[in-house]
């Protein structure tokens, strides 16, 4: 009887895993099969025509990149400074509530950030639908994740190193610059890559901030359509846009996977360096 139950559980676990992996292979397979036909140099270098059914995605890639650059330019310095403050300077009674807030904000739905970005950047600050608004909204969305990963990287640096630096008479600023930040660099980069991946995947927060316009942006105050918004628009609002949508989806997935695998590699190398040090 006991033998029986054991075999049953084993079978169930194998079956469930096969089901999960199968579903994902189905999804990825479909994206590759439907997308690969669209994918060539012209698709990446041409402007979209006929509402995106034909032509390429060049202006959309440029807009996506610009939105990302704005987001990073704001989020990285702010996030790095906050993480340093939390891990090296802040008193515990101040750091704790800040951490709780960050954890909560990391879970706030992206559409809510979209509402916030629309109200603050587009309307209250008068930026309208623009790459600025989209990038700043994404920066707010990225901050919690980036701060938390960076801070955990900094706190993972052995306290021996801090004491060693202190014994050598280094100021804390010098210790931070010469020892702690370099030691935590892989973890910080990994957090950065994760945040970029999430920003690239974001759609809901961008629809009402950076907008729908699929022309080549001329400045950062122009509206620009991100790649994920392009996929959404093609599949929902453009009949016959599925092929181009799958092509764009393949480009997006390849981009995100490349970034994610860099992040995973860096994290693993960092952890290995920690455990062998």
């Amino acid at each position: 009887m006991r033998k029986h139950g054991d075999a049953l559980l084993t079978a169930a676990v194998w079956l469930a895993t096969a089901l999960v992996v199968g579903a994902f292979l189905w999804l990825l397979g479909d994206v590759v099969i439907h997308g690969i036909g669209k994918l060539d140099a012209a698709f990446l270098l041409d402007a979209p025509q006929n509402a995106g059914r034909d032509g390429g995605i060049a202006p959309i890639l440029v807009s996506t990149l610009l939105i990302l650059v704005v987001a990073l330019a704001v989020a990285v310095p702010l996030g790095l400074a906050t993480a340093v403050y939390l891990s090296e300077y802040a008193a515990a009674q101040l750091a704790k509530p800040l951490r709780v807030c960050l954890n909560m904000l990391a879970g706030v739905p992206s559409i809510v950030f979209g509402l916030f970005g629309n109200a603050l950047f587009c309307v209250a600050l008068g930026m309208g639908f623009s790459i600025w608004s989209g990038g700043l909204t994404l920066a707010c969305m990225m901050l919690p994740l980036f701060i938390v990963t960076t801070e955990s990287g900094l706190s993972a640096v052995s306290s021996e190193w801090r004491r060693g630096a202190a014994a050598l008479g280094l100021s804390r600023a010098a210790a931070l610059w010469h020892i702690l930040l370099p030691a935590a660099a892989p973890a910080i980069t990994a957090g950065l890559m994760l945040s970029i991946g999430r920003a690239l995947a974001e759609t809901a927060a961008l629809i009402f901030t950076s907008g729908y316009v699929d022309r080549m942006p001329e400045s950062l105050s122009d509206s620009g359509r991100a790649l994920s918004v392009h996929i959404y628009d093609l599949s929902m609002n453009v009949s016959g846009g599925d092929a181009a949508a799958y092509g764009s989806a393949l480009v997006l997935i390849v981009l995100i996977l490349a970034i994610n695998s860099v992040a995973v590699n860096l994290t693993e190398r960092f952890l290995q360096a920690r455990t062998t040090a």
């Binding site: 690239l200 759609t203 994920s228 599949s235 997935i253």
Partner: peptide
């Protein structure tokens, strides 16, 4: 994988 791809 982005949610919009799951949606598509």
């Amino acid at each position: 994988i982005p949610s919009v791809v799951y949606g598509l």
